[in-house]
Amino acid sequence: MSPMIYFLSGVTLASAVAAMTLRNPVHCALALVVTFTGLAGIYLGLGAQFLGLAQVVVYVGAVAILLLFVLLVTRSGEAGDGDRERDRVAERSWWGWLIALLVGAVLAVGAWSAGQLPQRAAPPELPGVRDIGEALMTDFAMPLQVVGLLLTAAMIGGAIIALREDRMRVAAEREGRR
């Protein structure tokens, strides 16, 4: 199983780097899809079946599609725009990488020292879908409600933010015509 995990990790990391460095935003989003799928594979390897599949449904099926849709609507994927993006990146992007690498180094020390934690000897009892459902309905009922509320609020908020300008412009044009 171990070589499989290393292969998946390599693919995930390489596509993540691609997602953050490629010039064309649409290519970035497509590379991000590979990252999400690779992570789902790693979750499956860790025994979190439900989480891995949920990751694919939510990230590949919804978030990535949404990203691509917005890229289409804002015409970020067209030629020309990519070159402009590159110029902007070239100016001072190394600052971002420097800061991120410093933060990463600190975190990596922490991750390395986690190896000295007492390890679980036997793998845990892997929960089935039924266990997860029962936990969601009993111990985690309150967080579930809150997440539902959050998603509703996000949906309404997203719709209003994206709609408002359009409505206002239509109304203004109507006023102007009068």
Binding site: Q49, V56, V57, V60, V129
Partner: peptide, 19 residues
């Protein structure tokens, strides 16, 4: 154990290919 979810997870990726 989560067969139906697997189906929907696989089916969700088709939109990406269409795009």
């Amino acid at each position: 154990d989560a067969g139906l979810l697997f189906y929907f997870a696989a089916g969700a990726s088709t939109e990406l290919a269409v795009f």
